[in-house]
Simulated assay, not measured.
Amino acid sequence: MPKFAANLSMLFTEVDFLDRFKAAADAGFEGVEYLFPYDFEAAEIKKRLDDNKLTQVLHNLPAGDWGAGERGIACHPGRVDEFREGVDKAIEYATILGCRQVNCLTGIKPDSVSDEEAHKTVVENLRFAADKLKQAGILLVAEPVNTRDIPGFFLNRTEQAIALFDEVGSDNLKLQYDIYHMQIMEGNLAPTIEKHFERIAHVQLADNPGRHEPGTGEINYPFLFDHLDRLGYEGWIGCEYKPKTETNEGLGWMKGLK
C-alpha cells in the first residue's frame, strides 16, 4: 500500500501553516511535504513534526522570488551564486528537519537566455547541488512540470529529464515524477513509470483536469497505485492537489484504499 504525504502548501490551507502539521496527522497522514520551509525557524518546524509523529518527506531548494512569479532559478545563468547559496540553505534546513530528499525546480527560462545556455546552466547547477547534497546524505530530485500551468518552464518531459540526468552523471540525482504534470504533457503514465522506475525516487499526484483529489478527473488512480505496488515502489506519494471543497471532505479516496 502506498505511503501518502500531505502537501501542506495545498492541503489544509484553511489553517495557518504551522497548524497544518497537526491537521495532517489528525487526518491520518504520516508524512508531509511542502514548497519551502524558509519563512520559519527550522527548530519550530521540527517541533511540529515531532509533536505529530510526522516524517518530513520533501521540500524544495530556494526558487527565487515565488511571490513575483519565479519558479526556480537553476536555468538562470546570471544567478548561479544565488543558486549555490540556496543549496547550502536547503541542506541546513533538511538536516535539522530530518528530510532525506530535496527537489530542484529548474525554473522558467528567461527570454534573454538561449536554450543552449539555459541547458548548460542547469547541468552545472544540478551537478553542483547533487554533489553537495550527497556529502550531507540528502538526495536531490528534479521534476518535469507542465507548460500549461507554468508556461516556459525549462524541464517539462520525462525523457528530457532522464537525458539531462545522464548528462549530469550523478548517482545522487533522481526523478520526481508528478502524475498530474505528466498526464498533461505526455500521458502514457504506467508504461513511462515502468520504463524509468529505477530513476524515480518520489511521486506526486493530483487528478486532471482541475488538479483536484484522485477520483475527480480522468486518471485511473486505483490502477496506478496497484501498478506502483507491482513494481515495488517503496517511496512516498505526495498529495499535491487543490481540494475540490474542504481538505478533510476530499480524503475519501485515500480512506477507501485501507
Rank of each mutant, 00 (worst) to 15 (best):
K3H: 09
A5M: 10
A6W: 03
S9A: 15
S9F: 12
M10Q: 12
L11G: 01
T13R: 15
D16F: 13
L18G: 10
D19P: 08
K22T: 03
G28D: 12
F29P: 00
F36G: 01
P37Y: 01
A43E: 15
E44K: 15
I45D: 00
L49T: 11
N52M: 08
K53L: 07
N60I: 00
L61W: 06
P62Y: 05
P62G: 05
G64E: 02
W66P: 03
E70P: 09
R71S: 10
G72C: 12
G72T: 01
I73Q: 01
P77C: 11
G78N: 14
G78M: 12
V80A: 11
V80N: 12
R84D: 01
E85I: 01
G86A: 05
D88Y: 06
K89I: 13
I91H: 02
A94I: 02
I96P: 01
I96A: 02
L97F: 02
C99N: 08
T106D: 01
I108G: 07
I108R: 13
P110G: 11
P110S: 12
S114P: 11
S114H: 12
A118Q: 07
H119G: 10
K120I: 02
E124R: 13
N125W: 03
A130G: 09
K132R: 15
L133I: 14
V141N: 07
E143F: 09
E143K: 08
P144Y: 12
T147D: 13
R148N: 14
P151K: 09
Q160S: 03
I162Q: 10
A163L: 12
F165I: 04
V168P: 03
S170K: 14
L175G: 04
Q176H: 13
D178V: 06
H181Y: 09
M182D: 04
M182I: 03
I184V: 15
G187Q: 05
L189N: 03
L189W: 07
A190L: 15
H196C: 08
I200M: 10
I200D: 00
A201E: 00
H202L: 13
V203Y: 11
N208C: 13
N208Q: 14
H212P: 10
E213A: 11
T216A: 09
I219S: 02
Y221R: 09
L224D: 08
F225V: 08
F225Q: 06
D226N: 15
G235C: 02
E240Y: 07
E240V: 01
K242I: 06
K244S: 14
N248T: 13
M254G: 02
